[in-house]
Design a protein around this nucleic acid. Structure first.
Lengths: 167, 167
DNA sequence: CTAAACTTTCAAAAAATATTGAAAGATATT
DNA sequence: AATATCTTTCAATATTTTTTGAAAGTTTAG
């Protein structure tokens, strides 16, 4: 496998993996491209490499910046904007954990809490609904605490956490 | 909020959350419905409650069984098939972790390994590709080991893991 | 102020994904 | 073996999501 094959394979794999962490293909591919590019890239560069339209590139770059994993850079004397990705994969993981907690986990926890707090009326179905949503609430809450813990951790948290888990 | 409102809210929340763990809306809603139903449900029952077609119900039930989180049950003297969900949420989490490792993480790890093993040719772009995919490979591998560790853990692993992390 | 260089927006089109429902397939019952 | 009961399949359809590209917007330079 040569460089170009390897790069394309990585970009397309990362692209289809996007759905795994809740982003679309183009967004994930742009991210992959920037992640392995030694130099910041312009919108033009990205459009060209991935064969996607200007509008698409613009929108997805914005979203990546909203996620806090891609940044604008300005080259001196140049009008054009350049983009880079967060290069430290652990920082990347932390940022993603933080955003997913905020966007998905926290809102879900709130709903689970509300649902599990309905009045107990003695029927089996109400009991079951309360019981199961309570259990999910607890689990989601624990997961959220863990994820936020991770966000405040030093760079090698994953390895350390692993060591602790395996004991 | 009364029982029906709460139940519907839970089902629709769980449904839209499906994409979070990589399954479609109908599948997630069927799962939610079974999770809070005190009794096994027939295909008829499910179609009725969720207002979805027979074909849709059949296909999604099959997938849920493939994930190992929904089971067939037979009532004595009845021809019809009934379905129940795994009720223990920790077992549910374990099963999901296991399947996602198998379906998504492991294949990705393999590709990252291949890509990061291309020949170093001294150029900056090749160096960067190797460096970044190696880092991702290491992280994905660690995550996979953690997830599989979790799969073999006892019922309160989440709480225990949390305690360890917080120290 | 006006033009040039670049970016963003958004309605329309395309692509991807999910859903339906009727026919075919099972399996049990008479 | 014919019928009844129930499930699965899959081509057609509907829905949702993504992408495009041209117009509008913004910023800098002259």
């Amino acid at each position: 496998m040569n460089y170009d094959e390897a790069k394309n394979k990585f970009i397309s794999t990362w692209g289809s993996l996007g759905s795994l962490w809740g982003i679309n293909k183009a967004m994930a591919q742009i991210h992959a491209l920037l992640l392995v590019s030694p130099e910041p890239m312009s919108m033009e560069d990205i459009m060209e490499e991935l064969k996607i339209s200007r509008g698409n590139t613009s929108m997805n770059l914005r979203q990546l910046m909203d996620w806090g994993i891609v940044f604008k850079e300005n080259k001196m004397g140049e009008r054009k904007e350049y983009f880079t990705s967060e290069k430290d994969v652990q920082e990347l993981a932390r940022q993603i954990a933080k955003e997913r907690s905020r966007r998905e986990l926290k809102p879900t926890i709130k709903i689970l809490k509300d649902v599990s707090n309905i009045d107990e009326d003695g029927t089996a179905k109400t009991k079951e609904l309360i019981k199961q949503t309570k259990a999910l609430h607890e689990m989601a809450d624990t997961l959220d605490i863990m994820m936020n813990k991770v966000v405040g951790q030093d760079h090698n948290w994953i390895t350390k956490a692993l060591v602790k888990l395996i004991k």
